[in-house]
Design a protein around this nucleic acid. Structure first.
Length: 519
DNA sequence: GTAGGGTTAG
């Protein structure tokens, strides 16, 4: 073209973005000043989208500055792409600032803001802004927006809000949308209703890799390893190509259902049969699988042989640390926590777990000295918390905090009674032992020793009628003591309940748990 | 010629 205009420039950039070469779009944008053609709103929306795909906030900020200079700061498309870009670059507060200053908004811009929150672990804010949108009654939510809202419900474990959103999906006729359905499958699984996940999943006509993966992961987290593996076989038969995430789900399923040989076979088959190179996340699953079953030496050797970035390393060594604690392998726990502390992530958690590993092995001096070291150096571990939803209310419980616990008196006496009955049944567990380590006041012992999930469960037992499933959510992983204790409790009180910890479920029924974490 | 959605290991 002798004289390409702004449309020619923008078309070419958009073309590069569309074929997956956003860096070429940015390169072209850099060449524009030499051509005396000025970028306009279309150009900015396109290149900001390129930054969003690349998660390049540095370039994104520079382009944002040009937007302000050239006076596009209230353009709907430009601002929507800025909100999205800041969201994808994990700068949610900047996304919100742009959103608040927008001249006009539509469903797309509201969706960008909801997504920015939902994808940055700010589920409450996502739901809050969705409520604001709904209150304005200017427009209906579409399938893009609903998918994001469902994602927010999933991350919060908000079953009731999730169901309400599912209702909106049905009313607005988005039931057959594959993306919305996948989000629902994931949401129900994360909210402890894996049977609903299955119902939604079986209604998807042509499930994508992601639909299948969501269902595989959901079943795996619930301890239904066989179901996960059957779904995997089914998707292969239907010639749907698995991806790297699918294999994380499959390996996770093997790990949590004790299917070690199968797991190792799947790892081998990844590249040979499916052309996917296993990476750190897959090896972490395998380390977990070997560690969980007690093959700690193999797990340690494998962990040492893996090349990792720092955040991958934290997960890898954290996995090995948990497994060593579980099986009382203090030697490996020491090595794993050393590496975890080196990675500069979850340092407090590493200290606590190592201390607990010592305590479990009866090395109380070491356990105490680690706790003392934490106090001395000011390393502080945030207390765990658990919560239950009853009707429209959420009740939150903190480890050891009986005083601000709703119906504290009743909760404590129920726990005492349960503990008594458990002792009669021969439960030894040393239930509270581990959290006693740094307690000095004897009178406080019993209370401080209570884990948050026990408080939440006792409260639920008092307030939720029989026949209704109790769902307890926990922000940290459930410890082995609680897991063992809950098996007894489900037997004593003769009812089912589900405890969701950070990423899996334990469904207690007739004194056993469907999740075979501790088999 | 422009903006938005779903799956990921301790």
């Amino acid at each position: 073209m002798p004289e390409p205009n702004v449309v020619s420039w923008t078309s070419l950039m958009a073309g590069y973005v569309n074929v997956g070469q956003p860096e070429m779009a940015l390169w072209l944008f850099g060449k524009m000043p030499g051509s005396s053609v000025m970028p306009n709103d279309f150009t900015f929306a396109t290149v900001i989208n390129a930054c969003s795909i690349l998660a390049d906030v540095k370039v994104g900020r520079r382009i944002h500055a040009q937007v302000e200079i050239l006076g596009f700061q209230s353009n709907l498309f430009v601002c929507s792409s800025l909100v999205d870009m800041y969201g994808k670059c994990n700068d949610v507060d900047e996304a919100r600032r742009v959103f608040d200053l927008m001249g006009s908004r539509n469903v797309v811009s509201w969706t960008s803001m909801i997504t920015a929150y939902a994808q940055n672990a700010r589920g409450h804010d996502a739901l809050q802004i969705f409520r604001e949108f709904s209150g304005l009654m200017l427009d209906h939510p579409n399938h893009f927006m609903l998918a994001s809202v469902i994602n927010a419900c999933a991350s919060l474990g908000r079953l009731v809000s999730g169901k309400v959103t599912h209702g909106a999906v049905i009313r607005r006729g988005h039931e057959s949308n594959d993306v919305v359905a996948s989000a629902l499958v994931d949401m129900y699984a994360k909210c402890g209703s894996v049977s609903y996940s299955e119902k939604v999943f079986t209604r998807i006509l042509n499930p994508s890799v992601i639909s299948y993966t969501s269902m595989i992961v959901g079943a795996a987290k619930y301890g239904l390893g066989k179901l996960s593996l059957n779904l995997f076989k089914e998707m292969i038969d239907r010639r749907i190509k698995p991806n790297d995430v699918t294999f994380v789900g499959v390996l996770h399923a093997c790990s949590h259902s004790g299917l070690i040989d199968e797991g190792l076979e799947y790892l081998k088959s990844m590249y040979v049969k499916h052309g996917i190179m296993p990476d750190a996340k897959h090896y972490t699953c395998v380390v977990d699988m070997l560690g969980r079953t007690g093959r700690l030496d193999e797990a340690y050797q494998l962990a040492k042989s893996i090349q990792v970035e720092s955040d991958e390393g934290a997960l890898l060594w954290g996995t090995l640390l948990s497994a060593s604690r579980l099986h009382g392998r203090v030697d490996i726990a020491v090595e794993a926590s050393k590496r975890l502390i080196e990675s500069n992530q979850q340092v407090a958690g590493a200290y606590v777990t190592l201390s607990n590993a010592y305590a479990l092995a009866g090395e109380w001096d070491n356990a105490h000295s680690l706790r003392a070291q934490m106090k001395l150096t000011g390393i502080y571990k945030e207390p765990g918390c658990s919560w239950v939803e009853i009707k429209d209310s959420t009740y939150v419980f903190y480890a050891g905090d009986v005083f601000s616990c709703p119906q504290g008196g009743e909760v404590v006496s129920l726990l005492r009674e349960l503990e008594e009955r458990m002792k009669e049944r021969g439960y030894v567990g040393g239930s509270m032992g581990l959290v006693f380590v740094d307690v000095e006041q004897e009178a406080k012992e019993e209370i401080v020793g209570l884990h948050s999930e026990r408080l939440a469960l006792a409260f639920a037992l008092i307030n939720i009628p029989k026949g209704v499933t109790i769902r307890v959510m926990k922000n940290l992983r459930m410890c082995r003591d609680c897991h063992e204790a809950f098996k007894h409790i489900s037997d004593i009180v003769g009812r089912d309940f589900v405890v969701r910890d950070v990423n899996r479920f334990h469904h207690f029924r007739n004194g056993s748990c469907t999740c075979r974490d501790f088999w």
